[in-house]
Design a protein around this nucleic acid. Structure first.
Lengths: 238, 238
DNA sequence: CGATATATTGACAGGAGTCAAAGAGGGTGG
DNA sequence: CCACCCTCTTTGACTCCTGTCAATATATCG
């Protein structure tokens, strides 16, 4: 049951009665398989449903008027990357698969109906969209205050933590099928420089980024370089 | 009635019955005057109330482990900059006054009580927190894709638009009492370079940043430099 | 009118971008 | 099974935007 990832993540952040969880589970439509680089929703679209990542990766991005694409965030199994579309409707960015992915969908009308009578669920979803914003703020700090290698280390560190919470890290190694060009778009760097940073990490034994798989060789250094600090340990719960 | 700014902003983004607005107005406590550079809430705090800016400016910031402070956003009259504290409770960043400011406060318990029976209001607040996230995403694009002057132009352009929506821009001129050092922290640049950019803008007749007041001399250029595009014209309404 | 914060300048250094070309990998079709 | 192609990665040379350091000028304020 791949919906479990989503449930797991929600319950990591909010207390939820079983009944609410069941109601939510019931409105997730059958899974759809999508190849990599498929646009799920486009900036400007009016959303009528939101998507649940069952497996694989997705990313949100925007292109600035300068023509450069900025990747805003990466999403993993369990995430609902366009949940904010429920209240906002109009998408302010694109959502694309990074790898082949299995997606579930939740129709907005159906979701509205079930949260109407379930305040705890409504609140949990609100919190979920705000935890998203927490990551954006951290990303701003990352872009604004760190050097190229620091940014890269931070990205890997954050990803590792989120994947670990979903049980997707084994032996300090995880799947992350991304090109250096997309890394560059996420970090606000040039492809060439991303390559240089990765090379350095490899030769210095910090981490290895081969064949869609990241291997963390010196977690200590990564945490240090990325100035990474643990987040959402309690999901901000009171 | 300085609460009107907040009401005005909410209604710009969401349809709200008069009754809801009255209920909301009723829970805003009397205004408190704060001098500039006063910390309103600190990272790590558990919020029990949220604040409404009646007049003046505030900013949200985080310090990265490198010791550098990153300013995440600026807030103006009408904003509720820590609204996300209602569902999240634990603050992930600081909130500080940029200028002397008049603030109102809304107790969380009181707010919970009034939104419990007013779904439209609850939804409006949810949307408000998400519009905040829209701005964060744009800021990520700004930091990740633009040059120093582009970032500066974008900041000014965004601020102008938000101030204009609150009726705080006259003759392409508005109050913005900030030091170059804080601008640097917001833009991810050094103070020296911020100074250079501002100098250039001044001599090229793009804009003037004197004595806490910004004068836009060539809006065309600013929009062009900042690649600024209009947002929240409809607040994302369906 | 000092005292302190802020703004401004100049010289210099260096991280990251750009350009261009060469390798590697991974598919695909014959 | 190999040749070919296309995308992605890697390298090297060179440029330049932005940071750093340090000194000076200007504001602001009690």
């Amino acid at each position: 049951m791949p919906v479990e990832m989503m449930i797991r993540k929600l319950r990591l952040h909010s207390e939820l009665p079983d009944e609410n969880v069941e109601a939510l589970r019931a409105v997730v439509t059958p899974v759809k398989n999508m190849p990599e680089d498929s646009l799920i929703v486009r900036e400007g679209d009016l959303s009528t449903q939101c998507c649940v990542i069952m497996s694989g990766f997705a990313y949100r991005s925007k292109v600035s008027e300068t023509g450069k694409r900025q990747i805003l965030s990466f999403h993993i199994a369990g995430d609902i990357p366009d949940l904010q579309g429920l209240p906002l409707k109009r998408m302010d960015h694109d959502l694309t698969t990074l790898s082949p992915a299995r997606l579930g969908f939740i129709n907005h009308d159906a979701l509205e109906r079930i949260i109407e009578s379930r305040p705890a669920l409504a609140r949990a979803l609100w919190r979920e969209t705000l935890l998203d914003a927490v990551l954006f703020r951290q990303w701003i700090v990352n872009l604004g205050t760190r050097s190229a290698s620091g940014r890269m280390a931070y990205l890997i560190g954050e990803l590792r933590q989120r994947l670990a919470a979903m049980g997707l890290v084994a032996n300090e190694q995880f799947d992350f099928p991304i090109t250096q060009s997309k890394l560059a778009d996420a970090l606000g760097l040039s492809v060439v420089h991303v390559n240089r940073v990765l090379q350095a990490f490899r030769t210095e034994g910090v981490l290895d980024f081969k064949r869609r798989v990241v291997t963390l060789r010196d977690l200590e250094r990564i945490v240090e370089l990325g100035g990474f600090e643990s987040v959402e340990e309690d999901g901000g719960r009171a």
